[in-house]
Amino acid sequence: MIELNIDGVKVMAPEGARLLDAARDAGFRVPSLCHHPAVEPEGACRLCVVELRGAGEEHSRVVPSCLEVARAGMTVATASEDVLSVRRTVLELLLQRSPASPVLRALAAQAGMETAAGPLGDAHGCILCGLCTRVCAAAGFHAISTLGRGAEARVGGPGGQPPQDCVGCAACAHVCPTGHIALEESGSRRGIWGRDFELLPCAECGVPTIPREQAERAASSLGFPSADLARCPACNRKATAVTFGRIVALSSTDAREGVKR
């Protein structure tokens, strides 16, 4: 453990922890958009900035806390004037891209900014933070990526087409900070990125489980038996219980004797 000072409070953090995690674990509220503990930080959104002075350093600097490793003796300010001004600039730029986003508007309000009333446009605009593409790559699918540049930039499958390597796991939709990735689910179908996936029906009871492609991928790359993947948790539990029940029944006379004695 190392000791550092955040907003005038002594804070302990595990060796190697990122500043953002250290601050949050200690109860400080630092906003972020592109950070998710599932993947390595990338420092794309710059919303998580803090003002930092290292031990023995004379000057402080404003840095993204998701990238910075916490070190002993650091002095950190999470809401200094400099921090707030960088944060406001970041939000202003993001709001230009996505003026109607409720997530961005809430963050702007927290930062004490005025936002235009009732703006039009995509409420769930992409801010190009790349979290979805990183999560997809971490799972080994690399189905989506950032296409184009500047104002034209967007995330999607190769050539803007529905991504053929997508297995429909929807991890990208769940981590997207602005809710940009449309996920449609009804009964045994799941629609995402312009593709339509069938949720495998449980082989015993028929409830929809995970997409067929996701199960097939797990069977081939992780070597899981398809029969196990084809049952829902409740039916897997039942199958196990029936086996256990047989074992218990076989040994029950002995065991009961054991309890009596």
């Binding site: 998710h36 929807a170 981590v175 995970i210 996701q214 797990a218 993947l229 039916c235 196990t240």
Partner: peptide, 15 residues
């Protein structure tokens, strides 16, 4: 850290 991909729910052979 969970992204809710749900693979673990399918992977556990015991539910």
């Amino acid at each position: 850290r969970c992204t809710r991909c749900l693979l673990c729910t399918a992977a556990c052979p015991f539910g």
